[in-house]
Design a protein around this nucleic acid. Structure first.
Lengths: 339, 339
DNA sequence: TTGAAAGCGCTAACAA
DNA sequence: TTGTTAGCGCTTTCAA
């Protein structure tokens, strides 16, 4: 033990100690490797003695792809997103991939970052961000790099997609509110719309229109709790007072709206005005809110995303697929129910 | 454009097109590279024409380390943790590193995962997880791998640490409650204690003892909203009724406790019982809770963590450092204030 | 400032 | 089943 603590041992060192060739070492560490039990035994023994570990960089270089998958997400500290990322990351790891996390808010950041990701010869990429530069996806296409988009528009003809069925969700929202007695609908949306938000709110407005109702639209600066609360507080009181059923584009916004209505404006929910969210984040079920909402099943979402990615990695010629996920209403305390 | 869309272009291809050597290409893409403006110009032109991108795997192999930093976190979908991870990840990216995210709940998972991280010859590792197998850190030590522990005990003599000053925090909590008139203190803790939780609650109990007060201790199964709420609901009512100042080990628990006290048990907060949390997560400021708490500054925390990491990467001989972060009380609506 | 040449540590054909 | 050999794409001395 005089020295030796310095450089990482290589397959060469292991081979020498075990009295075999470097290929044997490689095979011993390759899942389906064609190697005899005895040789494997010798190798693993020598390896653990030396503290040997396969160098994934070298392996990746040789195999022309690392086991890394890019995971791109904005607003990671938001309840829905953090849960998505956790589930995706766990699913990836379970399948033997290593998620490389890119968190960035400004689109141009994201571009250069993803750009640098590509240098790692990643096996694929999952985009949950709201801002996927189109050019970037084109880049991936040129490289033949598998991409899965989560709750995003398919801006190009590249990449599989997993999306909540926002259209049906918006219709569902209108139906829930109307069925529980709302006559004058409202809809709270952020000024800067994302794919999810537009899909939902547009479908909601359209479904209402079909029934001869023209909802009031309220705006929040962005889709945060604070902005939603401020948005409702800034709304025209006369108009707001007419509304008896408010659909919010996300749960986070619904919670902000709820606090504005009840605590800032002193309105009774659900008696005076019903409130309905979308997503079913954890906080929606907290006793102080007990928010009715439309649930997105993000556990199965993560599984589908990773499955699509794996299939695409296995066969790059697949036609682009779109998986639409069903949504289910979760009626809690901010809507009225008869029976 | 007949073919060529297939393999990734290499520095060789770029060199040929630019009419220079591969070394020149390498230098053009190396920040401090000693190369003439004209050559660089030729190289970058050829490179962008070919869509060339440095292969980070090969570069890492050659330089014996990738720009990857392991980021280990459990319970990522929790408000505090998701914010920490966002900030850490952004700070790492800003410094040119790529965060590889390991999310895992069970300790043995984590071990094998980190084990596989090491194969990427990562530049360092940040551990925020509650469960850092000791053997693992020993491994890092043998490898000389820089490690920064966030809010964790220093189980071995390896790794720099950034910790909230939990001891002072616990004392602060006792002082806040007592100063605002509480006479009979309570403390809500999870059954399975972590470094942070123990530090706080032990210091709280001790500070109270110094003043001749022996707080009641309430237990939650784990440190989630639901468990905290259930824990308070399961508490002995007679004992609970005596308590007029409750310190909760984390904000998340405090919110659960608050809902249990107010909504499940019908107690008046802060008039009948004051509640104080710890961390200052976003939800603490939501109007329905308006929770008084002890704030941990996790923005500066992330910066310190990354700074320590960089310094350690630059100089592996540094003595282990511990940065204690100050805490500040944030008094909102769940404690009483005179002036 | 530039190019030639020698690896970084591994896997995959191929031959034995 | 095993070993030999030839790269994977890059950086980095060393000379020029």
């Amino acid at each position: 033990m005089a020295k030796s603590a310095n450089r990482n041992p290589t397959s060469f060192d292991v081979a020498r100690l075990a009295g075999v060739s470097r290929s044997a070492v490689s095979r011993a560490f390759t899942p389906g490797g064609t190697i005899s039990p005895e040789t494997r035994e010798k190798v693993t023994k020598a390896a653990s003695e030396l503290g040997y570990r396969v160098n994934s960089l070298a392996r990746g270089l040789q195999q022309r792809h690392s086991g890394i998958v890019g995971l791109v997400a904005s607003r990671l500290d938001t309840p829905l997103r953090s849960r998505q990322v956790r589930l995706l990351s766990e699913a990836l790891i379970r399948e033997g991939f290593k998620p490389m996390l890119i968190t960035a808010e400004r689109p141009d950041d994201v571009s250069t970052l993803i750009e640098s990701l590509l240098g790692y010869r990643i096996a694929g990429m999952i985009l949950t961000s709201d801002s996927p530069t189109r050019a970037l996806i084109e880049d991936c296409k040129r490289l033949g790099l598998p991409v899965v988009l989560v709750n995003r528009a398919g801006v190009t003809n590249w990449g599989d997609r997993v999306v909540a069925d926002n259209e049906t969700g918006g219709q569902l929202a209108a139906k829930v509110l109307i069925d529980s007695g709302a006559m004058h609908l409202g809809c709270l949306v952020p000024k800067r719309k994302t794919y999810s938000v537009s899909g939902r709110s547009d479908a909601f407005l359209e479904a209402a229109a079909q029934l001869g109702i023209l909802p009031e639209v309220f705006y929040a600066e962005d889709q945060s709790y604070d902005d939603a609360r401020a948005g409702i507080n800034a709304a025209d009181r006369a108009i707001l007072n007419r509304v008896d059923g408010l659909f919010c584009a996300t749960d986070l916004m619904a919670l902000g709206a709820l606090d504005a209505l009840r605590l800032d404006l002193g309105m009774a929910v659900p008696d005076q005005i019903q409130v309905l969210g979308f997503d079913d984040i954890e906080q929606a079920s907290w006793a102080s809110y007990n928010l009715s909402t439309i649930r997105q099943d993000i556990v199965s979402q993560a599984e589908i995303v990773v499955r699509l990615l794996i299939e695409r990695i296995a066969d790059g010629t697949l036609v682009n697929r779109v998986e639409r996920q069903p949504l289910t209403p979760v009626l809690r305390g901010t809507t009225r129910h008869d029976g």
